[in-house]
């Protein structure tokens, strides 16, 4: 099958750069800016698409590990109890390890969204009616998990040029575990 997204994206970028951009009214600043953003966005998509599945699998494994930590530390009143129970159910059903490699991309994406939602709910609950010690430990878990995940998230969009010190952010390929390998959590 020859007609794949990498070729399609490359052709679209070329059309934008060679034909569309030069034809735009130079006084229409809004159109000029948006045409350039389209080229930039297509370039990012070309880089990201081959890695999207690995990225989602890596995040999913990281979130499952984080969810287990939260279940271990989160103690408190009824709100915390209910949030932890919901998270435990989701974590128990989550695809992990070798199972992930047979899961459809959409399924892993849904799993990531649910784990984000339910871990977020535990954090909120612990700071409403959690025990003081639980707040400290949950806070530390969130900060540690976020540090590892955000490095990947920043690397994911490195090409946009926002980072003041881009050399300090490793390329995304180096940060992602393959779908069949355990993710590096720290």
């Amino acid at each position: 099958m020859q007609m794949r997204p990498p070729l399609q994206i490359q052709s679209m970028i070329k059309a934008m750069v060679d034909v569309v951009l030069p034809a735009l009214d130079p006084h229409n600043k809004l159109a000029q800016e948006q045409a350039r953003l389209i080229v930039g966005m297509l370039g990012m998509m070309a880089q990201q698409m081959p890695l999207q599945y690995r990225f989602d699998c890596d995040e999913s494994a990281r979130l499952i590990s984080f969810a287990r930590e939260l279940q271990q530390f989160a103690r408190g009143g009824s709100e915390t109890g209910a949030a932890v129970a919901a998270l435990a159910e989701q974590t128990g059903n989550a695809k992990c390890g070798p199972e992930v490699s047979t899961s459809a991309p959409g399924e892993i994406e849904r799993q990531v969204r649910e784990l984000r939602r339910l871990t977020g709910a535990v954090v909120t609950a612990v700071f409403h009616d959690g025990e003081p010690a639980a707040r400290v430990q949950v806070g530390k878990s969130v900060l540690d998990m976020s540090k590892a995940q955000l490095l990947r998230d920043r690397s994911w969009v490195l090409a946009q040029g926002w980072e003041p010190d881009p050399a300090s952010v490793p390329p995304i390929e180096q940060l992602l575990a393959s779908p069949t390998e355990p993710a590096v959590h720290r």
Partner: peptide, 25 residues
């Protein structure tokens, strides 16, 4: 009128989250 710009700008969010994380830590 510029959804593509709004989407592009989302990329800054990760760097700001990392700044937030470091500050809380």
């Amino acid at each position: 009128h510029q959804d593509v710009l709004v989407t592009w700008l989302m990329g800054i969010g990760n760097m700001l989250l990392e700044e937030m994380r470091s500050l809380i830590e």
